[in-house]
Nucleic acid binder design. Structure first.
Lengths: 152, 152
DNA sequence: CCATCATGCAACATATAGAGTTACATGAAA
DNA sequence: TTTCATGTAACTCTATATGTTGCATGATGG
């Protein structure tokens, strides 16, 4: 199966938005992400529904950050995307009658649940503000460049 | 993406094989797993290459366990399958030039790697022997039944 | 030797889900 | 009223796990 990159993508968008005042059109963001405006709208829809961003139509419209970046974690963003599957593996059958399969599922579920819980916990530890801080460090002394400057 | 159930499936096969002496034909195993013989051969191929099972052609042929069940962990089995992706999510771009994307990747990679490491560690803690023990407990006082008895 | 049985494997079909694209409706600003 | 921008449905494309068919290879038993 293809690897889900929506979380990675939407974080990229949010971090770009945090670098300068908005609003940003889906078109602008799509160019920076080398993708399609509709894809941007699609992944941003969940964030809008939870109030993390706002969208405006018409002239001067576009996307704006609408939350305290120090209050929103990567886990919140993940949830806003609809909590897609974290693990690429799963059990063959969820509620098997076969005792052999039950034993296998029990062992695997234990490992799977631990891993999922850890991943969610790690995502919950990182706020968007901390991500922006990290980015500021990476930018270092280099003059701040507008969105799109890093991209072709 | 569809959920990968190969590990779950091959463990089911191995555990069935541990319940009674072999050999077992792909056909028999496929029936117990409600799938196709070729699928069995496909997932078993990696195990055979690592010497965990043996396969014989012709009359009286089929699959036989060829390892010490207390020495082989679920992680070993996972590796034998070719170490397929554990996480359903990944970074949009692996080696991005964009500093924003680098910051995002760094944060996510940290969480991803922790989760993967934990999952592998958990799988490494469980041996096939322990799985078989657990199954024995589940079977309880109930008389042992031949392969296929639990299935339609 | 030959028929049968079983694996090995290539090739193709199917199903699912993320990602990309097109088209059009809705609504806001100039 | 024209233009701009989002909202959304409905496609296409792609990757991957899974299912299936067909045939080659090799071992067993007659």
């Amino acid at each position: 199966m293809k690897r889900d990159s929506r979380l990675s993508g939407v974080l990229h968008v949010l971090l770009h938005m945090a670098q300068q005042p908005g609003p940003f059109t889906s078109e602008t963001l799509a160019k920076a992400m080398d993708t399609n405006p509709v894809v941007i709208r699609r992944v941003m829809a969940g964030l809008r529904d939870l109030g993390y961003v706002r969208s405006e139509k018409g002239h001067g419209g576009g996307w704006t950050l609408a939350c305290d970046l120090s209050k929103v974690t990567l886990r919140d963003v993940y949830t806003a995307l609809g909590s897609p599957a974290l693990l690429a593996m799963g059990n063959r059958t969820e509620a098997p009658g076969c005792l052999v399969e039950q034993a296998v599922n029990a062992a695997l579920d234990h490992a799977f649940q631990d891993a999922e819980a850890l991943l969610l916990a790690r995502l919950g530890e990182v706020t968007l503000a901390r991500l922006a801080d990290d980015l500021r460090k990476r930018l270092g002394s280099r003059k701040h460049q507008g969105i799109g400057a890093h991209h072709a």
